[in-house]
């Protein structure tokens, strides 16, 4: 076989049958459960997983859970609900902002940002960003914090390893709270929790342990992101 991008080509139809069979076997025989819940983020991975679940378990056996918080882009919820409507599955929407406030996620993270930018408060927006032109030369990755005031004035500064670890630990709690919510809804219905991590993310460790990585089965963890898109195009 010649090495080219074609090595990633898949037959989406066959993949849907294969994964659906895996989901059915796992859900009914291994877990002896009645269905599955999936967190609908509004992204393509959870949209494809929801499609797989419906193919495997029927729309009556799938619950879509939407878990926005105050910093989520509203378009994510809109897309998630749109996908659920298309599939005809039941949905639950829980705003997890209050749970995160109770855990002091925002408070602790913002205090780290204030250590870097003392003027930072709730009127500012902030982003953790990578430097531009990352691939231009062989250099060491680092993260920047960019804050933006109401007038759109931006300031950027490199964050230390210690501050990066503190910020990411706070951000990861969001995924862990979502995991708790997903398991609550799955147990109420005697369902399993389906994950949405794709192979590109698995290879990079780009998921949160006991967060979005805390699930019962992973229907797309063998598919690279390009392959998830391929299935999505086929289903569209």
């Amino acid at each position: 076989m010649r090495f080219s991008k074609a090595v990633l080509d898949i037959d989406p139809g066959k993949e849907i049958s294969r994964v659906s069979e895996f989901i059915r076997e796992s859900t009914f025989k291994k877990f002896r459960s009645r269905g599955a819940v999936v967190g609908l983020s509004g992204g393509v991975d959870s949209a494809v997983v929801a499609e797989f679940l419906v193919q495997a378990l029927g729309r009556e056996g799938v619950l879509g859970v939407l878990l926005p918080e105050k910093e989520s882009n509203p378009i994510s919820t809109e897309y998630g609900l749109k996908q659920a409507k298309k599939l005809g599955i039941e949905t639950v929407l829980v705003d997890i902002t209050d749970r995160l406030k109770t855990l002091k996620v925002y408070e602790e993270r913002d205090s780290v940002i204030r250590d870097v930018f003392p003027e930072f408060d709730s009127s500012f927006r902030f982003h953790v960003t990578l430097p531009q032109n990352l691939l231009e030369k062989d250099r060491i990755n680092y993260h920047n914090i960019t804050i933006e005031d109401k007038e759109g004035k931006r300031q950027t500064q490199r964050i230390s390893a210690k501050d990066w670890l503190r910020i990411s630990a706070c951000q990861n709690m969001k995924q862990r709270v979502r995991m708790v919510e997903l398991y609550h809804h799955s147990e109420v219905s005697h369902y399993i929790v389906a994950g949405t991590t794709n192979k590109t993310e698995v290879c990079q460790g780009f998921f949160v342990k006991y967060g979005d990585g805390g699930v019962d089965l992973e229907p797309v963890s063998h598919l690279y992101k390009t392959q998830v898109y391929s299935v999505a195009r086929y289903l569209a």
Binding site: P131, D138, I140, N141, Y142, S160, A161, K162, L165
Partner: peptide, 25 residues
């Protein structure tokens, strides 16, 4: 890469220097 930034923080504190972003190579 996170460890390198820990090394950078150590160098800045120990030797009273500032490591610029461009120097992270």
């Amino acid at each position: 890469s996170t460890g390198i930034l820990e090394l950078v923080a150590f160098l800045e504190e120990t030797f009273s220097i500032h490591v610029e972003d461009e120097a992270l190579i």
